[in-house]
Design a binder for these strands. Structure first.
Lengths: 125, 125
DNA sequence: GGAGAAAATGAAAATGATTGTCAAAAAAGA
DNA sequence: TCTTTTTTGACAATCATTTTCATTTTCTCC
C-alpha cells in the first residue's frame, strides 16, 4: 500500500463527485504535492482494478473516478453541471437487464446504468 | 445532403453492430473509396447530431456508432465479442430513472443504459 | 452554360488524454 | 547497513479526435 496511492484515494474521498485524473493531479499539485501525473494514473488504475473506486466515461470519452460509500453494485445519479453524484439502486433494473439478456441468448450479461440531470443546487444558479 | 455522408450512412446501415470511425474508414478505403478520415468523422458527427445514428463509448473511451431501426428512445444489448447489438426497450427503467432523479431534486433527468454480454453465436465459438 | 459564392472535402498538423520507458528514489528484507 | 524489490516521475510515444487551410465540388443566380 503505497503512500501515493493513499494520497490519491484521499483526494477522491474528499469529493462527492466524479473526478478526472488530470483534475485530481492539478488539485494535488496545487496543494503542494510533488506527485507525478503518471502516478496519479497508476493509482487510479489500481484503485479501480481493486474495486475501491468506480469509473465512468464522460460524453467526450474522458475517464472519471469516484470513491463510493457502497461496496456493492450500484448506479449513480450525476449532476451534469458540478458532477456531484448520488449512489442509487434499482433492483428492478438489475432483473430487467438479466432477463432481456437471457431472452436474446446472451451469456455473461452485465450492464451500465447512469442517470444524469442537474442537481438542486445547480438548478437554482 | 452530401454524397459522403450518404456513403458513411450506408456503411453503417450495412452492419448490425457498433462501429468506430477508424473502423468504418478502414472498410471504406478497403473497398476502394477515396474518402478521407476527417470526412468520416464529420459525417458521423452530423448523423449523430441529427439523431440518425446512436453513439456510445467503449470501455477504452472510443466512440462507436450504429444506425438503428428504431427512431425512438431505446437501449442496446451489445455483444462484447463481435459488437452485434439488439435494440431493446425497458419502460420500467425509464420510469425508474425519472423517479429517482426527481426524488433527489434533479431536473432535466436523462439516462444511459446499455446491456452487455456474449451473443449466442460468440458463446459457441 | 458560366461566373462567383458557399459548402464539402481531405491532407497534414495540432490537441489532449492516456500509456510506455527507464533511470533515480524509496521501502522492505536480511 | 547492504541488497533486492517496488514505487515514482520526467519525458517520450500512442492514438483517437479535432483544427486548419487550401482545393474541389456544388449551388445559385444571371
Amino acid at each position: 500500500m503505497s503512500t501515493r496511492r493513499e494520497t490519491v484515494r484521499q483526494a477522491l474521498t474528499g469529493s462527492t463527485g466524479f473526478r478526472s485524473a488530470q483534475d485530481l493531479y492539478a488539485d494535488l499539485r496545487a496543494e503542494g504535492s510533488k506527485i507525478g501525473l503518471t502516478t496519479v494514473y497508476r493509482a487510479l488504475q489500481a484503485l479501480s482494478d481493486s474495486g475501491e473506486v468506480d469509473v465512468l466515461r464522460t460524453d467526450d470519452g474522458e475517464a472519471v473516478y469516484r470513491a463510493c460509500d457502497s461496496e456493492q453494485h450500484h448506479h449513480h445519479l450525476v449532476c451534469r453541471k458540478c458532477s456531484t453524484a448520488v449512489e442509487i439502486e434499482g433492483p428492478a433494473v438489475e432483473k430487467w437487464a438479466a432477463e432481456v439478456g437471457a431472452k436474446h441468448g446472451f451469456t455473461g450479461v452485465t450492464h451500465t446504468v447512469e442517470v444524469f440531470g442537474t442537481c438542486g443546487d445547480c438548478s437554482k444558479a
